[in-house]
Amino acid sequence: MTPSQPIDPHALDRHHVQGLAHHFDDMDQQHEAATLGMWAFLATEVLFFGGALAGYAVYRSRYGDAFAAASHHLYLWIGVINTAVLLTSSFMMALAVNAAKHGNRKKVVTFLILTILLGLAFLCIKGIEYYLDYREHLVPGSIFEANWHEMFPHIDGAHPGSMMFLRQVQLFLMFYYILTGIHAVHMIVGISVMIVLTVKAARGRYTAEYNSPIDMAGLYWHFVDVVWIFLLPLLYMVQH
């Protein structure tokens, strides 16, 4: 609220407003607080992923060849399908937020469920991909050490430069698992939150006046989507 304005006495009569917490003067103030809070939280998230991506940037600039070679062994087509799944999920989320602003309970529930299902589909596909990676021995450590010659048959293991190359490939794989793993954890958190919101929405907790939680979950979900859009080229499409 604008500080210089006097308080609207009606705003203090909050007992009839559904969803307004006791310590806010009115819905606008509450929504503004929620929005700023979520954006501040997303700033935190940017720095969280940013730390790992900074490390990625350092090593990719040093070990471009190994990173490109390793990246070529990932399943680009699975990554692309998952991108489509996640973008569609985000679209459903946008529709849910829009429906919430119009107070359409049925549509909110439908679109939230679709968002959740697409999110789960993403995680399932990701799980399958991890399994395929595992079968390909794309796992840093002893599995990779024992089987690298299947992936890189032209490399001479006796050559010291080649050994460095193979280690750098594993470094890339570490980033692959850590970044996609953290992203998946964010997906799981988002899906859990949306299950709670779906139940609450079905019970009629949200109205055209009060729907900040759905709006905020939407912001978060789009953020998780954006992170993936960065991860796709950084992990699957490395040229040099």
Partner: peptide
């Protein structure tokens, strides 16, 4: 708090 701490967290 909000811009520094997450970097420690990921580290």
């Amino acid at each position: 708090f909000i811009l520094g701490t997450p970097v420690l967290a990921i580290t």
